[in-house]
Amino acid sequence: MTIAESMLAEFEAQAPITRRFLERLPEDKLVWKPHEKSMSAGQLAYHLAFVPGGTIRFVQNNPVQAPEFANFPQPADRQEILKTFDESIAAVRDLLPKLDDARMSEIWRMVSKGHDVLAQPRGEFLRDVMLSHWYQHRGQFSVYLRLLHVAVPASWGPSADEQPLFAQQAQSA
């Protein structure tokens, strides 16, 4: 199994779980923030939706210019978030399998003002940002849902509100 195939298998297992989180954001809470320094619930959901596709598109070139990290769009509705998520999923499914092990192992560089700010194997960057960063924000989003009194979906294990899908399926069998 190639590096990309392994990463895609993990991504495919996690994408439906992330979708369940995004689908639970109440339409009337898109601009709600748990703290003045926090992203709004809509901004965080949009970020969750955008990260996988944005990351896989970002690593296609080498080197790349470092982006502005603090600009998170405020979506107009949950449908915009889910559309962005669907586009993101499609981008990963299209582009990730095209990265052979040589490209995944290549030192990939992000530059700012002509200087490297990051240099690491492309596959390591994808694991760090497309997956680990994604999971970290999904955990953050679960706290937003809890504070909004919305049932938190199970991810790997149970949440306080529900069992993971595999356990739900076993109970209904």
Rank of each mutant, 00 (worst) to 15 (best):
K98D: 01
H35P: 03
V92N: 06
T84I: 03
G123E: 11
R93G: 06
P75M: 07
R57A: 14
S112C: 00
Q74R: 10
S40R: 07
A90F: 10
D100Q: 13
F50E: 15
Y46N: 09
R103K: 15
P52T: 08
P26E: 01
D100K: 15
V117I: 15
Q60W: 02
V51H: 05
W108D: 03
I107H: 04
E68W: 12
V129I: 13
F85S: 05
R109S: 12
H133R: 03
S112F: 07
K37E: 09
P97N: 11
V51A: 10
I81E: 04
Q43M: 14
S132A: 14
N61A: 15
R78Y: 02
L118S: 08
D28Q: 13
S38H: 07
M104V: 10
A76P: 00
W108M: 05
A76N: 03
Y46D: 04
D86L: 09
P34M: 09
V129L: 14
G114E: 15
Q43Y: 14
E124D: 03
P63T: 07
Q43N: 12
P34T: 03
A66K: 05
K83W: 00
F58I: 01
G53S: 10
M130I: 07
E80R: 06
H115E: 12
E80D: 03
K33M: 02
A119Q: 12
F50A: 14
S112D: 00
K98Y: 05
Y46E: 03
D100H: 13
K29L: 06
A90T: 12
E106S: 05
I107F: 01
R127G: 09
V129H: 14
R127H: 15
V51D: 05
K33N: 00
V92H: 07
F72A: 15
